[in-house]
Each structure stands twice: as structure tokens, then as C-alpha cells.
Nucleic acid binder design. Structure first.
Length: 476
DNA sequence: TTTTGAGTTGTTCGA
DNA sequence: GTCGAACAACTCAAA
């Protein structure tokens, strides 16, 4: 049989059930479609485009080594996929499932159109350990709190082992676009110039990262993951985002790593669980990036848009070292440490009282791991408008967090060269650093807002929301 | 149906 | 310096 394999967020040869099935059935044509036309599909952010370029480059190589070839096409899936299937004389179209609202709609319509045209269509579970529709509460609803969700997942059937990589693929090639023509890479300026020293997009890079993590960083993960100055996190997020690695592979690799303490293993698995939970939420709330999960937040009194404050946050010029180090790490590397993400998000949403969507969009554009589910779910979690969200009174203090989780200032120094000469603890509060008469003052901004009053302003705004005070209404 | 216990990640204040 | 309480009820999940 001749099968068209449509790859999307599953750019890997190992543990790829759609590929394995297609290869087992006969000849395979592999296509990646750049679809910027189907309705409702969120355009990739800049950093994700950079990653995609290199991931596709890598995939083309590994696929060629296995006997296949990667066909690049561009257009609306509803026309491009049936068109290519016709062109190749394919009898079947296979893909791995995706879970976003618009994506599901595209896939469902395509499935029925292809079947009507007499083709065999099959979709596979590849990117989530637990299908969102399979996880139901006792009353048939979907889970809204992480802990019971994850408990139910762990009590469900054990995730399958990874699917073996097909041996020699009988590949079918066809004319397609040149990758360069898609212009996924930034130019003028090339803000991603430092990315390639840090990241290796593609399946081999993902495998290497996983092996390194299990060998080294997974020890003391539970505690170490909180310190941004350490290399204690897995940094697998962008690989997972593009499906260069599957959660099934992670699951199984942990099984085979007895050197990791139970505490660290449980902690890391639960981070995989949060990814599952976010997709579970997005599946049931496809507009998670646009609308408050808790609709009572629609009445929340965000500050009127302040371009200057938003820009200071984006550029890492708030005057709070941990916030600024995080935002510059994001800009320079396309990634930010998890704890620092919470601190910068809390600062934007609570201290600046800027709508979480502005932060979510910036992360979407600048993160190489920008994930359609995790990004909005976690922003809403910080804002308090999300599922199982942080209580409104939880306002991170960037100075306290800095002293607690980067006590020696190692993380701060690596992204704030203008403060590199300051010792701890004053590096956490540079405005307290006395400048001697013969010294040039620090080239570092004064704090954008005062922490105490801005925190109180946020608490007041949340209290008004709770008490149902409508913004702008006349006081009674 | 009703009840009960629990809920990722924090900060501040006062004893 | 350390520690517990307050912050605010509310929703969710399950018994």
C-alpha cells in the first residue's frame, strides 16, 4: 500500500505510531505542511519558527538516512493533503492526533472528506499519555484540579511502551518547497544568533538531551529544579513541543533509570503530568488563550494598556534583577527557567496589573517551547483566572524569590552584565548599593514600581472582583 | 443528595 | 531569627 504520512507536531522517527504503521503497510510519502491559512490555527511565534526550521532540517536528514524523504508543502490542509494524496496515488493517509480546537476541526473534516473519496484514514495516539476524553471524573465531567486528575491518570492503564522505529523505509518522494523559501529564520536583525549554541533542534538532539538529563540533572531534580542558577531542569520542553521526543519515551526511559531517587522521579513525572493537564484543559476549553477560564474575571479591572511598562517588562528593564534576568534570558536564549517564569508573570499581572494575555502573547512569540496548551494555562494559573489557579493573594516578591532561589546571584550575573560586579546580597536590590564618588553609577534602571503599593493595588483589585464591584460604576 | 476534605510553586505580620 | 496565622471563601472530586 502507498500511504501519505502527514507529520505535524511529531517530528520524530522513534515512537511514531503513524509512521510505524505506514512503513509496515508499504511505501510511505512523508509530508510536512506549513498551514497558515486554515481558520483558527494560531500562527507560530518567531522563536518557534526558528526551531521549526532547524527541526525540519534535521528530520529531512534522519528520514533520508532511513530511506525516506521529506516533502515540504504549504497551504490549507483541506486542499493540500487530498491534493498531494491524489498526486501520489496514495491509498491511505495517516497522522498522529493533535488536540487544539481548530486543529481537531481541520483533521475531522479532512478525515471525512478523504474517506468519502475512498481513502483509508487512520489517526494515532502519540503526543499525550492520556487522551483528554478518556480522563473523566466520577460524574462524567472533565477534571479541573490537577491533583485528582493526575491521581486518576496514574491509576489508569500504564502508558504503552514506545513504538519501535521502522527499519528501512520505502520512501516516496515528490516535488516540494525549499525550506529556505519559508523564511522561518529571523533576519534584520537575527535575534536568534545565540540560539544555536544552546539548542540542538531535532530528534538526535532531543535524545541526547534526555540521556544527559537522566545521567546528571535528574539527581536532585525535586529541589534543584527551583534554582535558576543550576542546570537542574530537563530543558526538554521545546523537543516535546515539536514532538521530537514523546512523553511515552520519557515515561519508559524513567522506568529504565534506577539511579534516580523516588522523590526526584515522582517530581519529574508530575511535570509531565502538568503538560497532560494543560492539554486536557485546552481540549475542553479551546479558547484558553483568548478567554478567562473563569468568566468572572471578565470584569477584572486591568490597568489601561501602558506601552512603556509593557516594554520595560519585555526588554528586562524593570529594575528588579530577577525579573530582568528572566526576560533577558528569554530574549537571548528563547527559553526561561520555570520558577523565573512564575516570577516575571506575577510581576506583569499583579505588580503592573497588565492583562495576562499581553504576557501570554509575548511568551508565545519568544519561547522556543511555546506550547498552545501550557502557555495559556499557566498564564491563567498565575493570573488567578485559570483552572486550579493560584489564590489571588499569592503575589511573588521578586526580591524575596531572588534571595531565596538565587542566593549567590549566579543566575542574575549571567544575564545582567551591568550588575556582575555587585556581590550578594546587594545584587538582589541594586538600588541599595552605595555608589562611591569616584565610581560611575550603575547603568541599571531604578525600580519601575514600588513592590509594596503595587502589591496592595493588586490585592484591592482582586477584592473588588470578589465583591462584585463593576469597574467604572458609580460608588453607592 | 449531601457532606467532607482538599487544593503546585507565596508573603507579611505579629508573637 | 523563627513560627504560625491570616489572606477568602470557593470549587472540585469523591465518598
Amino acid at each position: 500500500m502507498k500511504t501519505l504520512l502527514w507529520l505535524r507536531d511529531d517530528l520524530r522517527l522513534q515512537d511514531n505510531p503513524a509512521l510505524a504503521a505506514a512503513a509496515a503497510a508499504g511505501e510511505v510519502a512523508v509530508v510536512y505542511l506549513l498551514d497558515e491559512e486554515s481558520a483558527g490555527i494560531r500562527p507560530l511565534g518567531g522563536a518557534a519558527r526558528w526551531w521549526l526550521h532547524h527541526s525540519l532540517e534535521s528530520l529531512a536528514t534522519t528520514l533520508a538516512e532511513a530511506g525516506g524523504s521529506l516533502i515540504l508543502r504549504r497551504g490549507r490542509a483541506a486542499e493540500a493533503i487530498p491534493g498531494l494524496a491524489r498526486e501520489l496515488g496514495a491509498e491511505a493517509v495517516f497522522w498522529n492526533r493533535r488536540y487544539g480546537g481548530a486543529e481537531r476541526q481541520v483533521d475531522a473534516q479532512l478525515k471525512s472528506a478523504l474517506r468519502t473519496a475512498g481513502l483509508q484514514v487512520a489517526s494515532f495516539q502519540a503526543n499525550l499519555l492520556f487522551e483528554p476524553w478518556a480522563m473523566q471524573t466520577g460524574t462524567g465531567g472533565h477534571y479541573k484540579v490537577f491533583t485528582p486528575f493526575w491521581r486518576a491518570c496514574r491509576e489508569a492503564a500504564e502508558p504503552r511502551p514506545p513504538v519501535a522505529e521502522p527499519g528501512r523505509i520505502r520512501g516516496i518522494s515528490a516535488a516540494g518547497d525549499e525550506l529556505a523559501a519559508w523564511q522561518l529564520l529571523p533576519r534584520n536583525p537575527d535575534w536568534a544568533s545565540e540560539f544555536s549554541g544552546i539548542w540542538t533542534p531535532g530528534e538526535p538532539g532531543a535524545q541526547r538531551r534526555l540521556a544527559e538529563f537522566l545521567d546528571r540533572n535528574a539527581q536532585a531534580y525535586a529541589v534543584g529544579r527551583d534554582e535558576p542558577g543550576l542546570e537542574a531542569t530537563s530543558r526538554l520542553s521545546p523537543h516535546l513541543r515539536f514532538g521530537e521526543l514523546s512523553p511515552f519515551q520519557i515515561w519508559s526511559a524513567l522506568q529504565g533509570s534506577p539511579g534516580i531517587a523516588a522523590e526526584d522521579e515522582r517530581s519529574f513525572r508530575s511535570e509531565v503530568g502538568w503538560r497532560e493537564f494543560c492539554w486536557h484543559l485546552l481540549y475542553h476549553h479551546p479558547d484558553l488563550a483568548d478567554r478567562n477560564y473563569r468568566s468572572d474575571f471578565d470584569a477584572f479591572a486591568w490597568q489601561p494598556a501602558s506601552d512603556a511598562e509593557l516594554a520595560a517588562w519585555q526588554q528586562g528593564n524593570t529594575g528588579y534583577p530577577l525579573v530582568d534576568a528572566g526576560m533577558r534570558q528569554l530574549w537571548q536564549t528563547g527559553w526561561m527557567h520555570n520558577r523565573v517564569r512564575m516570577v516575571v508573570a506575577s510581576f506583569l499581572v499583579k505588580n503592573l496589573l497588565i492583562d495576562w494575555r499581553a504576557g501570554e502573547q509575548w511568551f508565545w512569540d519568544t519561547l522556543v517551547d511555546a506550547d498552545a496548551a501550557s502557555n495559556p494555562a499557566n498564564w491563567q494559573w498565575v493570573a488567578g483566572s485559570g483552572a486550579d489557579a493560584a489564590p489571588y493573594f499569592r503575589v511573588f516578591n521578586p526580591v524575596t524569590q531572588s534571595k531565596k532561589f538565587d542566593a549567590d546571584g549566579k543566575y542574575l550575573r549571567s544575564f545582567l552584565p551591568e550588575l556582575a560586579g555587585l556581590p550578594a546580597p546587594v545584587i538582589h536590590e541594586p538600588w541599595k548599593h552605595p555608589t562611591a564618588l569616584d565610581e560611575t553609577p550603575l547603568d541599571y534602571p531604578e525600580p519601575l514600581v514600588e513592590l509594596g503599593p503595587s502589591r496592595q493595588r493588586a490585592l484591592d483589585a482582586y477584592a473588588r472582583l470578589r465583591d462584585g464591584v463593576v469597574p467604572g460604576a458609580a460608588p453607592s
